[in-house]
């Protein structure tokens, strides 16, 4: 009896001890994530007043009415969604063969080497990667030099400071996330599936199209959602590769807040961007894919 009580007591204290582990981070997230974002939501329902940051008790829907009645902002939202969708699609097409090769490389050293390349580029500061992109894509950049050297074009082709440039930059940004998501899924497909299709007389291409590709579908879906959420949120890529000529939502937020001190309207755009991004993330989580080990 006393022994059972002792076990019960120690079980309880251990249980409490476990909660002590997570309380600091929960407190940190509530204080510096939930409350600030919550206040931002509240700010978006305040009447617009230039220069005022503090939340007031007046409720107004004017900011949202303004957002949804001005074609300028609606088009920015549409452009953001379109951009992120195009980037998801292109990133998928570019990343799939890379992920396939990584997944099928069985030599451990070679496999690790390829993963290190992907991981190192993912961890490298985006500004540095864009510096390289700008040198390659600029009017006097490498590609234009080659084109003109070969006589393909007379003058420089505008490869950046436009929508196209932002797409190029975002694909470079998103590739590692897509690759890591796909590698996990492709690795999980039993080779016997494709072998079975082959032994039944399917050509290699047909076996790939009918077996391997459909079996990669969960990774394709969650990778695309992840890339969508990441690229719609990016400020740095549209800023540098679009040269502020491609007005997507993050650019508008910065302009409203930092340049015009319109906190309420800036908060409204921020809330709309946050909700679009969070929806994509929620669907991504719903799919239950954690193939990138929580690193993506």
């Amino acid at each position: 009896m006393t022994k059972a009580l002792a076990i019960g007591a120690s079980g309880l204290s251990q249980h409490q001890l476990k909660w002590l582990l997570v309380v600091p981070l929960v407190a940190f997230f509530v204080l510096f994530f939930v409350i600030p974002v919550g206040l931002l939501f509240a700010t978006s329902f305040n009447p617009a007043k230039v220069g005022q940051v503090a939340v007031v008790s007046d409720i107004s829907f004017d900011n949202y009415i303004r957002f949804f009645s001005r074609s300028n902002y609606l088009m920015a939202a549409g452009r953001s969604v379109l951009l992120a969708s195009i980037v998801s699609l292109i990133t998928l097409v570019v990343a799939y063969p890379m992920a396939f090769v990584i997944a099928k490389t069985e030599n451990p050293a070679r496999n690790t080497f390829l993963l290190i390349l992907v991981l190192a580029s993912m961890q490298l500061d985006m500004v540095i990667r864009l510096y390289g992109m700008m040198v390659i894509l600029g009017d006097n950049g490498l590609i234009n030099q080659i084109f003109q050297g070969l006589g393909l074009t007379d003058g420089p082709v505008a490869l950046m400071y436009n929508f196209r440039g932002v797409v190029f930059g975002l694909v470079q940004f998103a590739l590692p996330f897509m690759i890591l998501t796909l590698v996990g899924v492709i690795k999980g497909i039993p080779p016997s599936l494709e072998e079975a299709a082959r032994s039944l007389g399917a050509s290699r291409r047909r076996a790939f199209m009918r077996v391997t590709l459909p079996a990669s579908m969960p990774g394709i879906l969650s990778g695309s959602l992840l890339v969508f959420a990441l690229s719609i949120s990016s400020y740095i890529v549209p800023a540098l590769m679009g040269g502020f000529r491609v007005g997507v939502l993050p650019i508008h937020i910065y302009q409203q807040v930092a340049e015009s001190a319109r906190f309420q309207f800036g908060a409204t755009i921020a809330v709309i961007l946050f909700l679009i991004s969070a929806t994509a993330v929620a669907v991504y989580l719903k799919l239950g894919n954690r193939s990138s080990g929580g690193l993506a």
């Binding site: 997230f29 994530f33 600030p36 931002l40 719609i232 949120s233 807040v257 908060a267 921020a270 946050f274």
Partner: peptide, 23 residues
């Protein structure tokens, strides 16, 4: 919830923190 900041817009979270620090 703990992993979510990685995929949520950094500009929005930065703006939220900035306004929070001021107010």
């Amino acid at each position: 919830f703990f992993l979510s900041p990685v995929v949520l817009p950094g500009v929005v979270v930065g703006f939220a923190l900035y306004a929070f620090f001021i107010t």
